[in-house]
């Protein structure tokens, strides 16, 4: 068990966003968290990444309590995260973005007088990730000039450049075209294998993506776990599918 949430409950004032959720993720798993809006998906993700503090219960990553640990330490521990809204460095090139991530991973960001260009490890590390994500042809482009799908890829690629053990993605394909969605997911899964990522957890609305790529689905409803099963089992349960995604299967929210 690499990441473990035990009996976590989260209140925002009077409102109970999550109730007694227990969830463990083991090495080798690709877990999708689904549920209608307001089911507590983002809250759960925030708790799992130590961003929010649970009202009760614990979250442990590699047997270490990560409550309130903050993004910097979390990244250093080996957990990466991407957000629903694409996060890029607008005025940096693709290459610079990936180099920054590699430099941070290698703990070389504080080398004030070292040459970036002369650092073979940083350069090669960035090239490798760019190639994995099909961004090598665009490595001199400024991030803000990329098409939306590539921005999303760059965002996720920079998280992968940290070579984390586990990665949490908040709607990795939101806001991109249907054709791009599958492409992004395929790249992502392939890259995960290459860098030896142990587990992926994603929040996703698109049920085709969810059923097509995950090993396990956790369905949330009104802050509680409604189902924790394989895609096959979930697909078989029409009542469950209706409940978490609405009537039409595959409709993205």
């Amino acid at each position: 068990m690499i990441l473990q949430a035990e009996n976590v409950t989260k209140y925002y004032g009077e409102f109970r966003a999550l109730h007694d959720v227990t969830l463990g993720v083991s090495a080798g798993e690709f877990v999708s968290i689904i549920g209608p809006n307001g089911a507590g998906k983002s809250t759960l993700l925030n708790l799992l990444t130590g961003l929010a503090r649970p009202s009760s219960g614990t979250v442990r990553f590699k047997d270490r309590d990560i409550t309130g640990i903050g993004p910097v330490k979390l990244a250093k521990l080996g957990m990466a995260r991407s957000f629903q809204l694409v996060q890029i460095f607008p005025d940096l090139t693709v290459r610079e973005t990936l180099q920054a991530a590699v430099a941070a991973r290698l703990r070389r960001g504080r080398r004030i007088f070292a040459s970036l260009r002369g650092d073979r490890d940083i350069r090669d590390g960035a090239e490798e990730v760019a190639a994995l994500f099909g961004l090598d042809a665009k490595r001199r482009a400024l991030a803000r000039e990329l098409p939306q799908g590539d921005k999303k890829l760059l965002d996720v690629a920079s998280a992968f450049a940290l070579r984390p053990e586990i990665i949490l993605l908040d709607e990795p394909t939101s806001g991109v075209s249907t054709a791009d969605k599958t492409r992004i997911m395929e790249i992502l899964v392939r890259a995960a294998k290459t860098i030896g990522l142990q587990a992926i957890i994603q929040v996703e609305h698109d049920m085709d993506i969810v059923f097509g790529f995950s090993d396990r689905i956790v369905a949330l409803h009104q802050g509680a776990v409604l189902a924790d099963a394989t895609p096959r089992e979930v697909q078989a349960d029409q009542r469950l599918v209706d409940m978490v995604v609405g009537r039409r299967r595959g409709a993205s929210a």
């Binding site: 996060q87 460095f89 940096l92 504080r110």
Partner: peptide, 24 residues
Amino acid sequence: HSPFGLCLKTIRDNPAKAETLGIS
């Protein structure tokens, strides 16, 4: 033109994203 300089630019462009990369 050092790794440090590059990290400064990430902070200028998007401090929240820089933090998720482990840049303090």
